[in-house]
Amino acid sequence: MSDVCDVFCYDEEKVSRLKQELASYDTLGMTKIFKALADDTRAKIALMLCRTDELCVCDVANIIGTTIPNASHHLRLLRNLGLAKYRKEGKLVFYSLDDEHVKQLIWMALQHSMENKILV
């Protein structure tokens, strides 16, 4: 059984409609989100931020077992891509996920991977 069509044909109406629709989407923004979450460290950070309101950089470093500069680097990238936000309280910096959409995306990806037992 082949996973490729044996003949070349296509639905002209459907292809034309979807090409037009695709041109109206910001796929680059979507790609950036998935690229940010494709890194295991950032995915872990995002998942932990889903589990609480906010975490300081020191907490994140402790949870994922890395240095504060490394955790800060990953958190900054998540923030720059619009997935996380931060607030400063004295000498501490607290991060949280930007909004409910980000949380839903992370939870759905986790649930999907657990249901399908996606392994590397």
Score class of each variant (00 low, 15 high):
G65Q: 06
A43D: 03
V120T: 08
Q111G: 06
M108N: 10
M1W: 02
F8I: 15
E21F: 13
M30P: 00
K88W: 01
A36N: 09
K91S: 13
E100W: 05
I106R: 05
S72G: 05
H112K: 08
S2L: 12
C9V: 13
P69Q: 06
A38C: 09
C9K: 11
R17Q: 10
I118M: 10
D40M: 03
M1R: 01
S2N: 14
K91D: 13
V120N: 11
T66E: 15
L28Q: 09
T27P: 00
K44H: 05
V93R: 13
T67Y: 05
A23R: 13
D6Q: 13
K14E: 12
K44R: 13
S2G: 10
I45Y: 05
Y25Q: 11
H74W: 01
R51G: 06
C5N: 09
L110A: 12
C56G: 01
L47A: 06
I45E: 00
E89P: 00
K44E: 13
K103E: 10
G29P: 04
L97S: 05
L77R: 09
I64N: 00
V120S: 12
T52N: 07
L77Q: 05
D3R: 13
V15G: 01
K35T: 11
V57Y: 05
W107N: 11
C58K: 14
T66K: 14
N62D: 15
D39R: 03
L81N: 12
N116T: 09
E89N: 12
N62Y: 11
L55D: 06
K14G: 02
G65W: 10
E13R: 14
G82V: 01
I68N: 04
F94I: 05
V4T: 15
R51A: 11
N62Q: 15
T41C: 01
A61T: 05
Y25L: 13
D98M: 15
M114W: 03
A36Q: 09
E12K: 14
S113F: 11
L83E: 01
S96P: 01
L49F: 12
C58F: 10
V93Q: 14
G29H: 07
G90R: 06
C9G: 03
L75T: 02
I63S: 01
H101N: 14
N116Q: 11
D6P: 00
D3N: 13
N116M: 06
Q104S: 07
N116G: 05
G82M: 03
E12V: 14
C56S: 14
L75Y: 05
A109Q: 07
E100G: 01
S72P: 00
T27V: 15
Y95M: 02
R51S: 08
S2I: 09
G29D: 06
F94D: 02
A109W: 03
V93M: 11
V4G: 02
S72K: 10
E115L: 14
I68R: 15
A84S: 13
K35D: 10
L49H: 09
A23S: 14
R87I: 08
D98V: 00
K91V: 10
V93C: 15
S113T: 12
L49I: 08
V7H: 07
S96L: 03
Y25A: 02
M114S: 09
